[in-house]
Simulated scan of single mutants.
Amino acid sequence: MKKSQILVLILGVATIGILYSLPRVVVDNEEGSTQITEDQPSSAQKAEELHDAPMEAEDREVLSGLLKNFDTQENKEKIAALSDQIASIYIKAGKFDSAAYTLDRAAVKLETPQSWEKAGAAYYEAYTFALDQEKVSLLAEKTRTYLTKVLEQDPKRLDLKTKMAMTYVSSANPMQGITMLREVLEEDPTNEDGLFNMGVLSMQSGQYKRAAERFEELVKHHPENVQGQFYLGVSYFESKQNNKAKQQFELVQSMSKEPMVLASVEGYLERL
């Protein structure tokens, strides 16, 4: 996942949502799409309906003015700036789908690698929060559409490749995603996103010992990854390595100040 500095807690909740909606594939055996397009009015409405988070009156008023300006704007620099402003307001309100759709519209007008990446990353963000399978598929497809454009021009962007891989894992062809993650780790064995996602997928398929190995490697090279540290504790717990689990959860307690993360840790410690 991109290092956008989103709160660990939010990322954790999003990942858990994906984790239990993914198809049960074997990650490591060692132990007709819908699209959102500008000429589909219902798609814009669908993006608005996906999230019910309330928007502050002041933000709504600002947003209205920005949208009017954006709809009629022809200057590309202003289009880019306006789309960023609009997306930030939607994100603040928890409307990740609407943010992605706005950046999608900008990308259609701008046709630049930067605009493609912004749209792809925004769709991926919305994808991580989606629960309905139809929405998951729609957002995953849009993520791949834009990130593929960027990768065609810069194939070394492993961070984007891991995002694409995770969208394939929730598709009808999950092994394509697993293969992509393995390719990332072959090229960069310490890749943070690659190790994390392979660990998550090992957990999802019930391979907790293998997951622990992935997360051990992750925190060895990226000790500041609190999510990885937490999931390492969960993997130890689920694989009956209780002493290691206890030590790991105590470490997470010393690293995180997020109330819900700490509550989860306390829950595991009480069960040990």
Rank of each mutant, 00 (worst) to 15 (best):
residue 247 Q to T: 08
residue 246 K to L: 03
residue 263 A to Y: 09
residue 258 E to K: 15
residue 243 N to L: 14
residue 263 A to L: 08
residue 251 L to M: 11
residue 253 Q to W: 05
residue 248 Q to K: 09
residue 265 V to C: 06
residue 266 E to G: 14
residue 255 M to H: 06
residue 241 Q to I: 02
residue 250 E to A: 00
residue 267 G to V: 09
residue 262 L to G: 06
residue 264 S to A: 14
residue 267 G to D: 10
residue 249 F to D: 10
residue 250 E to L: 08
residue 263 A to G: 14
residue 242 N to W: 15
residue 239 S to Q: 05
residue 264 S to L: 12
residue 240 K to H: 10
residue 268 Y to R: 09
residue 239 S to K: 01
residue 246 K to Y: 00
residue 266 E to C: 11
residue 262 L to N: 03
residue 263 A to D: 15
residue 240 K to D: 13
residue 250 E to G: 03
residue 251 L to D: 08
residue 266 E to N: 13
residue 248 Q to M: 06
residue 252 V to A: 07
residue 248 Q to A: 01
residue 263 A to V: 13
residue 260 M to E: 13
residue 267 G to Q: 00
residue 239 S to G: 04
residue 258 E to R: 15
residue 244 K to G: 03
residue 248 Q to C: 12
residue 247 Q to P: 12
residue 261 V to F: 02
residue 263 A to F: 02
residue 268 Y to M: 13
residue 239 S to M: 00
residue 263 A to E: 12
residue 253 Q to G: 09
residue 242 N to Q: 15
residue 250 E to H: 07
residue 255 M to G: 01
residue 257 K to H: 10
residue 267 G to E: 09
residue 255 M to T: 02
residue 256 S to I: 10
residue 254 S to D: 00
residue 252 V to I: 03
residue 266 E to F: 06
residue 250 E to Q: 10
residue 247 Q to I: 09
residue 256 S to C: 02
residue 266 E to A: 14
residue 244 K to C: 04
residue 239 S to C: 03
residue 264 S to F: 11
residue 265 V to H: 04
residue 261 V to P: 08
residue 263 A to N: 12
residue 246 K to P: 09
residue 254 S to C: 04
residue 258 E to T: 00
residue 261 V to T: 10
residue 245 A to N: 08
residue 258 E to M: 13
residue 265 V to W: 01
residue 258 E to D: 00
residue 245 A to R: 07
residue 247 Q to V: 12
residue 264 S to H: 14
